[in-house]
Amino acid sequence: MTTSSTRYERTAIVAGGGIGGLAAAIGLRRAGWSVTVLERRPDLHEIGAGWSFAPNAVRAADALGVGDELRAVSVPTQAGATLRTPAGSYLMRFRPGRDTALLANHRADLHDALLAHLPAECVRAAAEVTGIEQSDSGAVVAYRTPDGQGQVTADIVVGADGIHSAVRRSVFPNASGPVFQRVLCWRGVSTPGSVWPVDGFQTWGRGARFGAHPLPGQRVFWFLTVRQDRPDTRYDDDLAEIRHRIGDWHDPIPALLDATPPESVLRHDIYDLDPLDTYTRHRVALLGDAAHAMTPFLAQGACQAFEDATVLAAQLSGDTDIPTALAHYDRLRRPRSQRVQRLARQDPKISLSTNPLTYGLMTRLTQMAGAAVAARKSAPLWNWTPPALDTHSTPVNRE
């Protein structure tokens, strides 16, 4: 293992070792900070399925110095501009040279790539943050491990511990909790080579939306979102329930379902957060889902976490005053991320409507508007430029 020659003087604790937490740790290290990531899970390696990344996230990854790693574990997907009906007709069709391909990858592959960008001693597993006490000079983080309780002091704390963030609860005890959005999402990944090639597409049904992205290794990630009035509804066989709902939709949807091991299908109720008044308090900053968890309908959750990490690292570069830097981070990130969060909450009110008139109008207008209108709609999300990072260190790679 190689080590950096940089002498770190300022310290940060990042709560959460997911994509956002690792991106924040990478950015802060590049800005000259000593970083420790506390992850509550005993296994550092991610599970999950696939997702896609828009150009704004790719630019953020480049600014963090991990753009090549993101591209290396990704393949292009046309799902952002290929929209179909359950019968297979096209509402919109991807055209090379006109439309923008997104980058799709498996969550575990990207997580491993980011983890490899940090030294082993930087990330501590099975360490669950339980509380934070702040002073003018820093913050004391209490955490729990299988061996007992512990504490660590740092100049700042970054809460990247997800929608159920312990950091958010500790620092903003009066903030509302996750809000169920009456949506259920199933996710799956086909076995390698079983259904191939797939360029990526979305299929809009009444009260249901299916999407598919190619993944490296000739795999295909797929998802199905449906209206669901109550959370925690369980089915004896999730894959059988999915087939019951969309088994007669156009090819290759039935084949993708057949090529997915039933035990691997993931099922999640969709929650988001009401907007917070601020993402920072004294020496603590929230990031990603801990700050602005959103529905997946704009495919921007992880993208916004990458943006957060880039802006936070840029604001904390150099010898800037920490409270001032965090105030600037909040000013720069909260309006944009909450605008995306609001749009992501509004989207399924139309796109998952079960009303036949609403569905008919939505599909007709989409077909009439075409790709040019869709591109203009995406532009405010995708045309984001990251700040430059004043780097002070060379990333440390695991070998």
Rank of each mutant, 00 (worst) to 15 (best):
S135V: 14
F180Q: 07
T310E: 01
R364G: 09
R98G: 10
H164R: 15
T77A: 13
E9L: 15
L365V: 15
G217H: 07
G32A: 02
V58M: 07
V198P: 03
A175H: 08
R227Q: 01
C185L: 06
A113L: 03
D112H: 10
R331C: 10
W222N: 06
L114G: 11
A23E: 11
A293Y: 03
R206N: 11
V58S: 09
H164F: 08
Q304K: 10
A255H: 03
D272N: 13
D232H: 14
T203V: 12
V35D: 09
V226R: 08
L28D: 08
P254E: 06
H250I: 00
V220C: 11
L276A: 06
H111F: 04
D62P: 02
A25N: 12
D161S: 01
R283S: 12
L70G: 09
A116P: 06
R209M: 12
P323V: 13
G370W: 00
V179I: 15
G370V: 00
A120Y: 08
I26S: 06
R364Q: 06
V179D: 08
A372D: 03
A291P: 12
F172P: 15
F306R: 01
Q181I: 10
H250L: 00
P231Q: 01
F221T: 05
I350K: 08
Q346K: 01
G20A: 15
L389K: 07
S353A: 00
G50N: 12
V189D: 02
A49N: 10
Q338D: 08
F180T: 08
A154Q: 12
G211L: 13
W384T: 11
P178I: 14
H282C: 04
Q338F: 00
D62Q: 08
Y359F: 00
L91H: 02
D238T: 15
E399G: 14
G18N: 02
L184W: 02
T233N: 07
G17T: 04
